[in-house]
Amino acid sequence: MTTLKYQTVIIGGGVAGMAAATELHKSGSKVVLIEGNKKLGGQVNNWYKVFPNFRPASEIVNSLSTNLLKDKIPVLLETSITHIESNSGNYILKSNQGQVIEAETVLLATGFNTFDPSGKEEYGYGIYPNVLTSVELEQRLKTNTNGISPKRIALVHCVGSRDEKVNRLHCSKVCCVSAVKQAIELKEFYPNAEIICLYMDLRMYDNGFEELYRDAQLQHNIKFIRGRLSECALNIEKDLVLKIQDTLAGLPMKLTVDQLILMVGKEAHQLPQFDESIIIEKASHGFIKPADSHLNPNTTSQPGIFCCGTTSGPKTIQETISDARSASLAVCDYLNKK
């Protein structure tokens, strides 16, 4: 079998992988982009509109993939890398399709998975039909298939984030603002329904986030209650009964809702299997630990293997694309010095 040769193999065809492929191609590097699914776009494909400006997520994916097409950058779809080993300064990658690829550098853009909330048993996910994840809600919004006429919907922040009980201590960064975005979308969908966000802290850290929160309060009358959901049960009318603590009022609180949206957090996507000689250090939250989080955010503990996007921790789409572009500079620098 012939070995395909590239300077850089990018693993993962989400927004990070696509953005990095285009940048590396522009810099004259010979790259290939590898994606396990049938189409490019990764997790962003699961979103309908994105914060903070309600832009259709497909616009971002389409724009990035059009660039790839225009530049005729090779893309291998439905291909997963099963094994990576090092070979005199280069890397040999084997795929599930039987290909063998030799490359000078590997850029990991494997991204994240969303937390499976059935581990938070008290929320009743997978048990009560009207409990769904934020990702499932996006699909329903996209296809207009939510199919209920609710009086009240609650969105629970930090599901699978900042929670020692499920061994997830980290903040997933995007859930707060995603919840505010989805709350507004729900309100527009069901103008007479009461939409409530149940939050621990509201982390509106980026440009436009705080403004969106303010807008949600003032223009859309979204209610915000500071308190983490402790238990969800079903009453005889099949409404969901929520037990929370209104930590600002300092009192326990009980309320019924017709639908419960769980803002599921981000966790590291599985990496390809590496040969024993390759050591990729991970941080405590399971994502890749960059060599230097301030100065070398895309360099891993293994020379020649780089990371970008949410492979090194939760990020917004904007941060992911910037990080991918920064990673392409790090890769170029490495190739030039080699």
Partner: peptide, 11 residues
């Protein structure tokens, strides 16, 4: 042969 009831304050 019985029917188990799930109710809000079960826990």
């Amino acid at each position: 042969g019985g029917n188990s009831v799930d109710y809000p304050e079960r826990r």
